[in-house]
């Protein structure tokens, strides 16, 4: 019985923690158990009949699933790389000592991150229109394209259009996080590098990049998880058509069609992929605690 005795701290912790734990157990742990059970059932809707891994083998043979994996990888890979590079460049630019109005630049750039997701998707859908859409018009007027591109209505371009929007929406987050990271670097390091006559690229390679390594990992993992889980942007712009169906969209569309065996199995696959990256994130974040 000794193990069950609680210290004074533990008694208090229990009181403060229990309500929150019960709420999340009901709304997070139980649903996870629920969806996993569904995915191993013959009849997913009432979770009856143990199916073993039959739903998964069926899913792996389904070309829609392999397509969703490829699309998720493409969307995630390009949008994360794009947002990271662009956000980092913005952070470096704003962080330069001689640049004035740093706060103002930061707030203005941050606007594309804070506006509601549905507004992001709807406004870009309107920009991407053909037959006189603003995005095509702008690209044509600077000579980047000669005729209108059917951004959201062709399987060749739709994914790239959505990647552009995701980069536009998440680069400000990178900018913000990396600015915070850059401010942690001691100025003396740069001063002594200046004395040695080091150029910008040299300083970037030997001081800036190595000293922002940890925050870079955290930032990229966050972007990866968000991209894998992104739903509203893609759903509003294409509903997953035109070869833009990522795992999120596959899960949702199968659920909408009440194809629950496939929906639950692909949901568990999405969960595994997300938690893989989330585990790294957690490892890095909790390290210092």
């Amino acid at each position: 019985m000794k193990r069950l005795s609680l210290s004074k701290d533990e008694k208090k912790a229990l009181i403060y923690l229990l309500p929150g734990f019960i709420v999340t157990a009901l709304l997070i742990i139980y649903p996870l158990y629920y969806i996993i059970t569904m995915s191993f059932s013959n009849n997913a809707i009432n979770q009856s009949g143990f199916a073993g891994i039959a739903n998964y083998t069926k899913l792996f043979k389904n070309p829609q699933f392999s397509k969703a994996i490829v699309n998720t990888a493409k969307f995630t890979g390009f949008s994360v790389a794009g947002a990271y590079v662009l956000g980092y460049i913005l952070a470096l630019a704003i962080n330069r000592r001689s640049i004035k109005l740093k706060g103002l630049w930061r707030s203005l750039i941050f606007i594309s991150w804070i506006i509601p997701g549905v507004v992001k998707a709807t406004s870009w859908k309107w920009l991407f229109r053909t037959d006189g859409g603003m995005f095509n018009h702008l690209l044509q007027s600077v000579g980047l394209i000669s005729s209108e591109v059917p951004w959201l209505t062709s399987p060749k371009f739709a994914m790239w259009a959505i990647i552009i929007v995701q980069i536009w929406a998440t680069a400000p987050y990178v900018m913000l996080l990396m600015t915070a990271g850059l401010q942690q670097i001691s100025k003396e390091l740069y001063e002594s590098a200046d004395l040695d006559g080091a150029g910008f690229l040299h300083k970037l390679k030997y001081i800036t990049l190595p000293l922002t390594k940890d925050i870079t990992f955290i930032c990229i993992l966050m972007l990866l998880v968000w991209a894998i889980n992104e739903f509203s942007l893609i759903w509003i712009m294409t509903t997953g058509g035109q070869n833009t169906s990522t795992l999120s969209l596959l899960v949702y569309n199968q659920f909408k069609m009440l194809n629950l065996n496939m929906a639950s199995a692909s949901a568990v696959m999405q969960l595994i992929v997300t938690m893989f990256f989330a585990a790294f994130y957690v490892k890095l974040t909790v390290k210092e605690d």
């Binding site: 889980n229 997300t274 909790v286």
Partner: peptide, 22 residues
């Protein structure tokens, strides 16, 4: 605390199905 941190990253499309039925 790991559990609370991890839960922030759960895909909503995954939780959506059980939550709908619940």
């Amino acid at each position: 605390s790991l559990y609370f941190l991890m839960s922030q990253m759960l895909p909503l499309t995954v939780l959506m199905i059980p939550l709908y039925y619940m």
